[in-house]
């Protein structure tokens, strides 16, 4: 199907053009219908969060009969003893620090692997590439033991600290690829002007890395924001809970009747992702198509 359109349209006569337009309209209708089906769960979630308790399950329509914000006020009033803002803040803090850590450490490592020549570079680079494929579970338990010995369980450190040590090799690789694409003359002329490697990195390379930095930031933020497994393992005091944890605990604690507030909280947990998506969709989609980053 795609094949036909891929061939450049020959000079079109009147009837052919009409045929094409009908086809284009049909195509738009089909694709839009698919998008709607795909987005239905999200739309349903948003609408359910504005439905009163007796409507959530009985009313399947996307528009509530009696819209209400009571679910939201209930959630802001407190969940498991704390306002949802507390969990929101915790999530934001963890994700924000993770972004800073990942960007700094991965950009540095990417610069070194992509530009500098040094002894042992080959084997180290090979190792870095190999760790991209490493399942997290193999290091999970010893890492937990380390953080336990450091008395850091039930703090944000285990979630944030590893990011400052460039443990997410995918982003290092992304940076390496980007650094390699930068013209060498730039840092050579910086060296001639008397810049050491550090100043070259900070004033020449890092500003040029902007697109890679943005891609890394967005994905780190969204992944950390959504991350459930590590947060589940490391945090156990409700005051430290992030949004995903609070949600899960809330669901475990409450009965079936509390669907409304649960959905309100779910919407709040998705809002930052939605905002990032709307603001940066180009970067996100291009990041995936050029480097194979997974969403």
């Amino acid at each position: 199907m795609s094949v036909q359109a891929a061939t450049p349209a020959p000079s079109v006569t009147g009837t052919e053009r009409r045929g094409l337009t009908v086809r284009t309209v049909l195509w738009h209708v089909a694709v839009t219908a698919l998008v709607l089906v795909l987005m239905y769960p999200v739309l349903w979630l948003v609408s359910s969060s504005f439905k009163p308790a007796d409507e959530v399950l009985s009313n399947l329509a996307l528009l509530p009969d009696h819209g209400t914000t009571s679910n939201y006020s209930q959630v802001f009033g407190g969940v498991a003893g704390y306002s949802v803002w507390q969990y929101f803040g915790n999530s934001l803090l963890v994700s924000g620090l993770a972004v800073i850590g990942n960007v700094l450490s991965c950009a540095l490592a990417g610069y070194v692997f992509g530009r500098l020549k040094f002894r042992g570079r080959g084997p180290l680079f090979a190792f870095m590439i190999a760790t991209i494929m490493l399942p997290h579970h193999v290091v999970l338990i010893p890492q937990y033991i380390i953080f336990q010995k450091l008395d850091m369980v039930n703090t944000f450190w285990p979630l944030v600290l590893p990011k400052f040590f460039a443990t997410e090799a995918f982003f290092v690789f992304l940076m390496v690829q980007f650094v390699r694409g930068l013209p060498k003359e730039l840092d050579e002329s910086a060296t001639i002007d008397g810049c050491g490697p550090f100043r070259t990195f900070w004033y020449v390379i890092l500003p040029l890395l902007r697109p890679a930095v943005i891609t890394t930031s967005i994905f780190t933020f969204i992944w950390t924001w959504n991350d459930f497994f590590s947060q589940l393992i490391y945090l156990n005091d409700p005051s430290k809970f992030t949004l995903p944890l609070a949600l899960q605990i809330y669901v475990d604690q409450t009965s079936q009747s509390a669907f409304g507030p649960m959905f309100a909280m779910s919407v709040l947990a998705l809002v930052p992702i939605g905002l990032f998506f709307v603001a940066f969709q180009r970067f996100l989609v291009d990041g995936v198509s050029t480097s194979g980053l997974k969403g």
């Binding site: 992944w223 959504n226 949004l243 995903p244 949600l247 669901v251 959905f263 779910s266 919407v267 992702i273």
Partner: peptide, 10 residues
């Protein structure tokens, strides 16, 4: 992007 979240699983 959304599918990995607890929200969507719920």
């Amino acid at each position: 992007l959304l599918g990995a979240s607890v929200s969507v699983a719920l």
